[in-house]
Amino acid sequence: MVTKSIALLVCDTPIPEVVAEHGEYPGIFTELMQKSLPEGSEDWDFKLDAYDVVTKMEYPSEDEIESYDAFMYTGSAASAYANIEWIHKLISFTAHLVKDHPKIKIFAICFGHQIVSLALGGNCVKNKGKWEVGPTKLRLTDVGTELFGIGDQITIQEMHQDHVPFVPKGFHLLASTNVSLNQGMLSTIGTEYQFTPSLESRVIDPPSSSPRPSPHLLFH
């Protein structure tokens, strides 16, 4: 039996209608992970531990971090660039996780994708009043096509006006739309990043030239 240990960083609570039908994020992610296990296989399982990073600002201890194979970040209605204590702590933890525990995988969704960008040399801003809401068709790059193995397009559910406006150094772009260039990005173990855990260092402009492509981390 192969068992993977996952830490779920819970960044919000779903709206009441979703909670009433599907429960909160720990239950939702547990169900999604169970459905993703290989069909008919008794050889794979996972253990998921949830951490409330908003109201409790809780994280695994330094000694516990290495017990996890991966960290997953939920979405959130918050803005990743907001000057709020729990968001600053999450960005700093993300930078520490990548810098000091590089073999641990990260999968971050929407708000989590934006947090990773801010922690690792990118940015997050409002998209000039443009929203993407509901089922949204993404154009996959060559790397995205190879990763997902489903052709050159994918449709996902979206709800955002904040976006990551460029691809940080060390990441491959996975998908784009006409509204938002960076719909997802991927990086690999051993990549060099520009770590930006402090508020001051995150107030940056996009680079004047395209970032150097490099092959681990995640994300939308």
Rank of each mutant, 00 (worst) to 15 (best):
C124E: 09
A80C: 07
G134V: 01
E62Q: 13
P213H: 12
L90Y: 03
L217S: 09
M159Q: 07
V18S: 08
E62S: 14
K128W: 08
S201V: 05
E66T: 14
K103Y: 08
V143C: 07
Q161L: 00
T155K: 07
M57F: 02
L97N: 13
I109A: 12
P38H: 05
Q153D: 07
Y193D: 02
V143A: 14
P215C: 04
C110T: 06
V98G: 06
W86I: 05
L186Q: 06
S76Q: 07
E24C: 11
I154N: 03
G112M: 02
Y25A: 08
P165K: 00
R202W: 09
D162I: 01
Q157K: 11
A20I: 04
A20T: 01
D162P: 03
D52M: 08
A95F: 06
P207L: 01
A82D: 15
K128E: 15
E17Q: 14
I109C: 10
S208I: 15
A95V: 06
L218D: 11
I154Y: 08
E66F: 01
S208W: 13
S117Y: 06
K128D: 15
K137D: 07
K130D: 09
W44Q: 12
T155E: 10
T191P: 03
T177R: 00
K103M: 13
Y51E: 01
I87E: 02
F219I: 09
L9G: 09
L37D: 04
K126N: 15
Q183F: 00
T136E: 00
P38W: 12
G170Y: 05
S76H: 07
R212F: 09
L97Q: 10
P26C: 02
A77Y: 06
T30E: 13
I6L: 06
K103T: 15
Q34D: 09
K130N: 13
Y73W: 07
S36N: 09
L217R: 11
V53E: 04
L37I: 02
G75F: 00
V53Q: 00
Y193K: 06
Q157L: 11
I115E: 02
I115Q: 04
A50G: 05
K126L: 15
Y68R: 09
K56V: 01
I91N: 05
I65Q: 00
G144A: 03
N182I: 07
P135K: 13
V54G: 00
P135N: 11
D162K: 01
S76F: 00
A82H: 14
K99P: 09
A70V: 08
L90M: 03
V2I: 14
K47I: 10
G75H: 01
L147H: 05
E31D: 14
G23W: 08
A80K: 05
E24L: 13
M1F: 11
T30Y: 12
S117W: 06
Q161V: 01
P168H: 08
L217V: 10
V203G: 05
Y25T: 06
A82C: 06
M33L: 15
L217D: 06
D69L: 09
